[in-house]
Amino acid sequence: MFQSRGGKDKSMNISNQIKGWFASLTIPFVLLVLWQVIVSLGYVPAIILPSPEKVFSTFMTNITQNDLLRHVAASLERVILGFIIGALGGFSLGLLMGLSRTAEKIFGPTFHVIRQVPVIGWIPLIVMMFQIAEIPQIIVISLAAFFPMTLNTLAGVRNVRKEYLELAAVNGFKGLKLIRRVIVPAALPSIVTGTTLSLGMSWAVMMAAEFFIDTSYGIGTRIQAGRSSFNMALVLVGIFTVGLIGYGLTITIEALGRAVNNGRDVHKEI
């Protein structure tokens, strides 16, 4: 009867997808060739820029002998924990300030002053206050997640069309029911954007946190170890790992966001 959303011919989709992959692999391939050329011609000493082959073999030995996966797992755990805490906090504060002008007057100015300070600026203070390495790491990461989530939730709630609120009023919706059934679903696209940005920020700030706060495991810690032992291959392994996992996290959360925004799982209780 009606077209399903985005319902195109399936075979078209697959061939487009393959074309898409080729397109997105072009730049990495060119960079790889360029890198190899620079190294082969000896423009840069190998100790500063190791060859792609050397980086790949370092990657393999790190997986098999040096617990690379355990480092990755430690970082991921921190990021996910910090992200969940920060994003939930940001969602709550954004919702509160979005719903109530009074709440915005109370929290708004302080919030906007604090968010001017780059998250890593808090590290020395937080480290002093919480001695155990894991806690300051998670606090710093959750701070990073907190700000974009607050701002986007606030914007989403503020921009709910007044027509929808009127419709809700006509149907006698008030309080929690109004928030749950109209305001949050209407603000959802903005909340999803906030979530995506929050996760990205958490992952990026994790690196900084691991540089500045000593821990035994973590992908940032690993890069730091490469730097202090002048092992640039290890540094590059760290950089690639962070980049690829960050990208994986982004496309996962974006896919989740698309699924939610499509309107299906938002509101199932009818």
Binding site: E163, Y164, L167, V170, N171, G172, A186, G263, H267
Partner: peptide, 27 residues
């Protein structure tokens, strides 16, 4: 407002995240 008065606006004002069924069941 009260449920004894229904309203149809010029813009249909359906909630975009709800299906036809869910929109009708809204109130």
């Amino acid at each position: 407002p009260g449920l004894n008065r229904g309203i149809v606006f010029q813009d249909h004002r359906l909630l975009p995240w709800l299906t036809v069924t869910e929109n009708i069941a809204f109130g």
